[in-house]
Nucleic acid binder design. Sequence first.
DNA 1: TGGATTTATGCAATTTATTGCATATTTGAT
DNA 2: ATCAAATATGCAATAAATTGCATAAATCCA
Lengths: 179, 179
Amino acid sequence: MALSHAIMTALLEDDMSGYELAKAFDISLGLFWRASHQQIYQELHKLADRGWLQCETVAQAGKPDKIVYALTQAGRDAMAEWVLGNSRVQEGKDDLYVKLYNLSEANAAHLAVEIGQRREQMMQRLYLYEKIRRRHYADPDALPVRRKGVYLALLAGIRQGEHFLAWCDEAQAMLGDIG
Amino acid sequence: MALSHAIMTALLEDDMSGYELAKAFDISLGLFWRASHQQIYQELHKLADRGWLQCETVAQAGKPDKIVYALTQAGRDAMAEWVLGNSRVQEGKDDLYVKLYNLSEANAAHLAVEIGQRREQMMQRLYLYEKIRRRHYADPDALPVRRKGVYLALLAGIRQGEHFLAWCDEAQAMLGDIG
DNA sequence: TGGATTTATGCAATTTATTGCATATTTGAT
DNA sequence: ATCAAATATGCAATAAATTGCATAAATCCA
């Protein structure tokens, strides 16, 4: 299980509540890992039970209380060990490509629309990630070690996104000739 | 659930047994969907129960019998309808990127090795996909409609792979300066 | 004839992920 | 006052995926 590791990674620098984590997963780490808030809350309980996280209820002005989680030393040790193990790729699964195998005159127009929507979503994401990159990773070689890793991950996401946009254009051009 | 649709897509042109499907998922469709043979066999039962597939035991010379599955008309109809619905992206989940967020002097060398392994795997895949492309999709505009869709999916996979190789090189260069 | 390998299919337990609720606090608008 | 929306946390049922077996026919090699 690696959702736990994704969560602990998000907690490396900042302590966070489940709610904050859920939002963090939409942005920074979201390119590489998705998780619902239900999953996150459940995992947080498990990690706290295992002693890798500790939690504390924090009162807030103008908002309900929150439960803030922080990595314990045991948690940090577990992470350090995990990084040295072998990674597992969980290949992305995307209906869109499977649908393309079913291309016909009857659905070409629909698929062109779907691709257009995906393109739009990716544009918005890329805009966000590019902003982060320009703001915090403008000079990658000057970054401290850990941040260099974050930079590389970000770079992979951005490149992937850019390639996807170009592909969308090609695909739509080709689909346009059919529908 | 869309494993069912991936399976039925694989059966669009050729009837296949579970064993053959499992192998087909490693190649052609494998860029976009992964499934274990256990999952496939189970899904085949469900689809047959639902009337979307029909099966037939076929004796083979020099091999055990196999159970070959074929799309029924109901199955084809269900597929045609499904394509017109909204797609769901299941974002890829990859430990490697999460690990990069944990980069340190202690693990930079290990991560460089992991990236090298991934690069190698992707090279082999790309070699296969490029071969398919050159052999069967050399002139995309001349393809029949359905094959154009397959071409577009293949193209997406190849582009993604090529970008990944380039990223690996960059990442290894950066990691080399650390470890 | 015994043993490894490939082909071929499957069950069962467990872990992960999704879906659909349920609840409660606080702000701000009507 | 009430109602919507954002914040915040959670349970339970189901679906999907993974992991670890188990079986069996046929080939090939020693």
